[in-house]
Simulated scan of single mutants.
Amino acid sequence: MHINILHLADGARSAKGTVVIIDVLRAFSTACYAFNKGIEKIIPVGDIDLAYKLKKDNPDYLLIGERNERRPEGFDFGNSPTHINNATITAKTIVQTTSSGTQGIANAINADEIITGSFVNAGAIINYIRKTNPEEVSLVCMGFACQYPTAEDTLCAEYIKNELEGRPSNFPTMVQQIKETDGARFFDPATESWSPESDFHLCMDLNRFDFILKVEKVGDLNYLEKIVV
């Protein structure tokens, strides 16, 4: 098994084999919490106009995501796992668009298969890759708005790679490093309304969920499918 760590949209476009699109803070952590709340299907899209169209055509869908970290106008939720986790949700389908994670899915045009990546289901991702044993694994770190690499996505990729190759990781040290760098914004009171501190802790809850989120394509749309591993 050959494991590559790649970065940003260019990395997604060049990724091959089993491709893990990693967005820890917060898209694919939020997606896991949404499935745990009873959501049955997530439609990840890169184009926000497509997200609005899907919502218009399907008023019962929930529209979640962010631009510049904040909830866009007309969206039901932002990109906060806290807000999803605390909400009463009766809808079964979500349309999700973000500045990083869903852009990675849209750009992974050479992948054999695509799954999402985060710490909250890292163990399930590792188990899935071990079971399927692909020749090539591409761990794509989407970074901040696809603009620059971030500690949380890079360290998540390193954690997955280490586990697959039988090397230890010091997860508490990783969490502290993330908290002191790219995760520091979650501890700023000025961002509490859209990026609460609790988001950081929820996203760092290692192996909370025992499922992966795999991308399936139906027609022109991608869907995230929950698969228990």
Rank of each mutant, 00 (worst) to 15 (best):
N79R: 10
D153K: 05
S118K: 13
P81D: 15
D188R: 03
E73Y: 11
G117M: 04
L202I: 05
S100L: 02
Y128M: 02
K161E: 12
S195A: 15
V95P: 06
E113I: 08
T150C: 05
E180V: 03
G166I: 05
A108Q: 09
C141Y: 04
P134G: 12
L202E: 01
N133E: 14
C141H: 02
E163R: 12
T191N: 13
S100G: 04
I125S: 06
Y148C: 03
P81F: 15
L155Q: 01
G104T: 06
Y148D: 08
G117V: 03
E197N: 05
E73V: 14
F75G: 02
K161N: 12
D188N: 09
L155I: 01
I89H: 00
V140D: 08
A190M: 00
Q177M: 10
E152R: 04
R167D: 08
V175R: 11
P172T: 00
T116H: 08
N133I: 13
T191K: 07
L202R: 03
M174A: 14
I89F: 05
T90M: 09
A157G: 15
V175I: 14
F119T: 00
A157K: 14
C146N: 12
R130S: 02
E152P: 10
I114T: 11
Y128Q: 01
N170P: 05
N162T: 07
N121G: 03
P196E: 06
A111H: 03
T181C: 04
T181I: 12
I84L: 07
I105S: 05
T82Y: 11
S99G: 11
Q103L: 09
A184W: 14
K161R: 09
D112T: 03
E69H: 10
S80H: 09
M204K: 03
G117N: 04
A124V: 01
H83C: 05
Q103A: 10
I114P: 09
D76Q: 00
T116S: 10
T150D: 11
K131R: 13
T154C: 03
I89R: 03
I178C: 01
P134I: 12
T191D: 02
K161D: 11
I178E: 09
S100V: 01
A91R: 09
H83N: 09
E135N: 11
I114R: 09
Q177I: 13
F119W: 02
N170R: 08
G101L: 13
D182A: 14
D112K: 07
R71N: 13
N107G: 07
A91M: 10
A106C: 04
T90E: 03
A111R: 08
E136L: 13
I125M: 06
D205C: 14
V120H: 01
T191S: 04
G166H: 00
T150A: 06
L139Y: 11
R71P: 07
A124P: 00
N86H: 08
T97K: 04
